[in-house]
Design a binder for these strands. Structure first.
Lengths: 213, 213
DNA sequence: GCTTGCCTGGACCATGTGGTCCTAAGCACC
DNA sequence: GGTGCTTAGGACCACATGGTCCAGGCAAGC
């Protein structure tokens, strides 16, 4: 994870510290938000000191940007595992169920690590915004690639547009996260994802292949 | 808008000042976010003074809570105008177009006034969270009421579930706002809303009544 | 017009927070 | 074991920011 930004020598110990900082920032900023998390919070939670924070990151903004990359990599890694071999509608349903289950563990709170940063950062840090935007695009591509495979395999009709379907599904997911977070209840997220899956289902070659859940 | 919170005497001038503060907070916090907006920013933008802020609001948290109500009322008022007489699918399309057009004016930036506060506040201020949640519920009810009218009028099939459809549409809207904000481009919001409308359309009695746009 | 109490201006304060810096310890390589 | 780097600890600073306070203005009811 920790990519040395410059050509400085860096030791294993240094890398470990940097990761500890990022991991703590990740944890704290997910529940409190980016702006509401102080460097002292992070320093304390990561068992480091001020000088180490500023040794590894130029300033808070740089730390946040690193966190954006860190989370992006985490999410994409997780999603790649779940979507890489997607070839059937039931695979999508399994993917949906995993996300819902994970979110239900904390009653809809916190939401998506990427989505929660987006609204806070996108009008404040152009660089973070574009990184987030690219991560969303990569995520959607994982989905649309799967849909392409389904279409090529004859499961989806030719007039299905994998890119648009993926965007719609991602919007339903993010909107579902948001409503679930507001309600402190996963239900709206389920409804939203089911709507998106139902929409994809309407492009299946034999429409009643399998139930949504 | 300005509801006096206690039984204090309050003059027209006082109400005007209070509204000016709320209006400035509304404007600033929409683009910078809640936590990133300072009271001094608000004081300056509203042409008031510190003592007036604290005369009308106990502290920043109370101001934010008042803003949640203020925005909620604004959004519901706007949405009521657009949804109150909804009786047809083309009405939904017009509603969609209005939202998209409004958002496209600033290239997808800022997003929904309610959604943008949600992720920042819901894990930080329980009272604000529940107020937001209720506002979303009321907003969804405006939609589902319209869908109910469509169903009663014989336009929607009996097996259509207005509440779930409304939740799905709201999630698509909010997710669309979020992706549009990240991309600084309305396109994903359009795709998301079209997906939700297409889904609703699939419950129309005569499915090909009219095109989506 | 005078008293009452809301309304307003703005100086002032305490503290949280991002950021700096100096010193020393660890480590790798010679 | 010496040299020069990285890693670490933590005191320290400047300042933004939330919050207080008081003196005076203004409006409304008597």
């Amino acid at each position: 994870m920790a990519a040395p930004t410059n050509r400085r020598r860096i030791s294993q110990r240094g890398i470990a510290t940097r990761d500890r900082i990022l991991e703590a920032a990740n944890r704290l900023m997910l529940v409190r938000g980016v702006n509401a998390t102080t460097l002292d919070d992070i320093r304390e939670a990561s068992q480091t000191s001020k000088s180490q924070l500023y040794h590894h990151f130029a300033d808070k903004q740089e730390l946040v940007r690193a966190l954006v990359r860190y989370r992006g990599a985490l999410v994409l890694q997780r999603e790649r595992a779940g979507l890489e071999r997607l070839r059937s509608f039931s695979g999508l349903v399994r993917w949906r169920n995993a996300l819902v289950q994970a979110n239900s563990l904390n009653n809809g709170k916190y939401g998506c690590g990427l989505g929660s940063m987006t609204l806070e950062l996108s009008d404040q840090d152009e660089q973070a915004r574009s990184a987030l935007s690219e991560t969303f695009a990569a995520w959607e591509r994982l989905i649309s690639d799967g849909l392409h495979r389904m279409r090529d395999g004859g499961l989806l009709r030719q007039d299905a547009d994998p890119e648009k379907l993926a965007t719609g599904l991602m919007a339903a997911l993010q909107g579902g996260y948001l409503l679930a977070n507001a309600a402190h209840d996963v239900a709206p997220m389920e409804v939203a994802l089911d709507m998106a899956l139902e929409h994809i289902k309407s492009f299946l070659v034999q429409p009643s292949e399998e139930p949504t859940r």
